[in-house]
Amino acid sequence: MTREDNTKNEKTQSDKKTNILSGLIKKKENSADVFKDGSVSVKNANLWYGDFQALKDVSLEIPDRKVTAFIGPSGCGKSTLLKCLNRMNDLIEGCRIEGRFEVGGTDIYKSADVNLLRKNVGMVFQKPNLFPMSIYDNICYGPRTHGIRKKSELDEIVERSLKEAAMWDEAKNRLSKSALGMSGGQQQRLCIARALAVRPKVLLLDEPTSALDPISTGKIEELTSELKKELTVIIVTHNMQQATRIADKTAFFLLGELIEYSDTEELFINPEDPRTERYITGKFG
């Protein structure tokens, strides 16, 4: 096989992939001009809630299509930073933000429409927050928001999103039933499916398993490893084992500062900073 053949082969393969994920193409055409890819860059981020400084000069680069974990004790600023990335902090009164935040090379606080940003940077919260509607309507909420009305298209999106969230088998026979009748773990995976339905480039997970049992937690962890093939996953977690299990890169925060940020293995086996070492060995936190 010549080298040319090889590249050609790769190309057809990738073509096939994009065809399967037809929605992905659509999204790329839509917002390719705004968000290039799922890489995230934060430069000199400072954030205050009133007088309290929650983030102190944080800078980090998060690679496209990898799982990145934010760890650290409560109140260290990891969730705050996460919420900066889809501008959910805008909702909080008295919150002041400085610094440059980029998603796919675009400054999200200057040039991007906040709703378009949130479409591209999805979020799943600590507690499942499904709407009091049917499963089907929950998944369709995002696509409908962004202008998709055709039943056939919506059906396709629902099936695909549920399959991607590994929920299809559990949910396919009760799509028209209220989503609130599902168990906690199922609800959280439905939340992930709902976020996936708008084809985001980045998915933010804010302690998604803290309210779940070990089996449901395992399912969501498996899911993140699948998801990173398509998008960037950033997960805030209190559970260090979870970070080692699923994250490619890990960032350790303490009192609003980014203490250490490197490949997960490196950070856990060979931490550079003594504070990181003390935290991961359980000396404080």
Binding site: R118, M123, F131, G142, R194
Partner: peptide
């Protein structure tokens, strides 16, 4: 509910 909807870009 509100957070969930806003986070989807609504």
């Amino acid at each position: 509910y509100m957070e969930g909807s806003l986070a989807l870009g609504a």
